[in-house]
C-alpha cells in the first residue's frame, strides 16, 4: 500500500514539473466594500464588476475579490458582514450585490473569464459575540451564497463566470480556534474554494515550524490556507511576508499529505513591494508553486 501511495505521489510530481512556469501576471483590482446601504452596495458592486471586465488583462480567468468586511452573526439565524463603513449587511444583501457584480461584468465583458468572490474577514469575531459554532456557520453560509451566485450566473447564461469565497484571515484579529471554523464551515457546505487573502503575521521567516501572533502556530496558518477547500492567495506586502508563507508551505508539506501551492498573491499599492514584485518575491521562493493570480488593493 505504501508503494502504491509513493508511486502516485511520484506521478503527481511529474505533473507538477510538466506545468508551465507562469510569467509575472498583471494585477487586477480587488475592492474594499464601503456600502452605506443595500442599494449603494448593489450599485457599487455593479460598477466594480463592469470596471473589472473593462480592465481585465489577458484571456485567463481572474479573481474579482470583493471584501465585504468582517463576518458577523446579525441575529439568531442571520449571518452576514459588517462593512468598512460600519454598516451591517445580511448575506441576502451581499448576494444581491454579488449578483449585480455579475451583471456588471457581463455587460462590460471584453475577454477572459472571472471568479467573483465573496470576501470577508476574521476581524474580532469573538468580541462581537460570535462563538466558534457561529464562525462555522458563517463559513457555511458564505459558501452557500457563493453557490447561490453560481446558480444565478448559470441561469442567466453568464458562462464566462464562476464564484467562490475568500477571507482575510489575520492571526492578530482572532484566535486560531475560531478562525479555523470559517474554513471548516465552508468545507462542510462544499461549494466554494476558500481563498485566504490574509497574512502569516508574526510567523517565522525561516525554518519549517514555529509560532505566530496571537497564539497561532504555523500549522494554524497552514490549516486556514490549505485545509479542505482553502487555497492561499496571501498578502505579500513585504519580503518578510514571502518568507513567512514559504515556511507555511514547507510546514504543510512536511506534516500533512502535501501538495501545497498558491493560487497567487494579494498585493497592495503603497507598501514595501510593488504588486509585480510581490508575486515575484513569493514565486522565487516557491518555484512553480505560485499560480498567476495577482489581486491588488489600490491598483
Amino acid at each position: 500500500m505504501r508503494l502504491l501511495a509513493c508511486t502516485v505521489v511520484a506521478a503527481a510530481g511529474v505533473l507538477v514539473s510538466a506545468a508551465v512556469v507562469a510569467a509575472t501576471p498583471n494585477p487586477v483590482t480587488a475592492w474594499y466594500m464601503y456600502g452605506g446601504s443595500p442599494s449603494e452596495l448593489r450599485s457599487n458592486a455593479y460598477a466594480h464588476g463592469c470596471d473589472f471586465a473593462q480592465g481585465q488583462p489577458g484571456t485567463n480567468m481572474r479573481v474579482l475579490l470583493l471584501d465585504f468586511g468582517a463576518a458577523r452573526k446579525l441575529d439568531s439565524s442571520t449571518w452576514g458582514a459588517v462593512d468598512f463603513s460600519n454598516t451591517r449587511f445580511s448575506n441576502a444583501d451581499i448576494l444581491a450585490a454579488l449578483e449585480r457584480a455579475a451583471d456588471g461584468y457581463h455587460n462590460c465583458h471584453v475577454r477572459g473569464s472571472v471568479d467573483i468572490v465573496y470576501g470577508n474577514s476574521n476581524f474580532h469575531l469573538s468580541s462581537s459575540g460570535m462563538a466558534a459554532t457561529d464562525a462555522w456557520w458563517a463559513g457555511y453560509h458564505q459558501s452557500r451564497r457563493s453557490e447561490n451566485l453560481a446558480d444565478y450566473q448559470a441561469s442567466n447564461g453568464y458562462s464566462s463566470q464562476t464564484s467562490d469565497a475568500a477571507s482575510d484571515m489575520e492571526p492578530s484579529w482572532e484566535s486560531a480556534a475560531v478562525t479555523k471554523q470559517l474554513v471548516s464551515g465552508d468545507q462542510a457546505q462544499g461549494w466554494a474554494l476558500y481563498y485566504d487573502f490574509g497574512s502569516a503575521d508574526g510567523c517565522p521567516q525561516s525554518g519549517s515550524a514555529g509560532g505566530c501572533n496571537n497564539g497561532w502556530h504555523i500549522s494554524d496558518v497552514g490549516y486556514v490556507s490549505y485545509a479542505g477547500l482553502a487555497l492561499p492567495l496571501p498578502e505579500i506586502y513585504y519580503t518578510a511576508n514571502a518568507n513567512q508563507w514559504t515556511v507555511v508551505r514547507k510546514w504543510w508539506n512536511a506534516n500533512t499529505h502535501g501538495g501545497y501551492f498558491f493560487l497567487g498573491v494579494t498585493a497592495s499599492t503603497g507598501v514595501g513591494l510593488t504588486p509585480a514584485s510581490s508575486w515575484t518575491a513569493l514565486s522565487s521562493l516557491n518555484n512553480g508553486l505560485v499560480e498567476s493570480e495577482l489581486a491588488c488593493f489600490g491598483c
Partner: peptide
Amino acid sequence: DVPVPVSPSV
C-alpha cells in the same frame, strides 16, 4: 469595533 481593511502586517 469597526473592521479595518488594512493588514496588521502593515
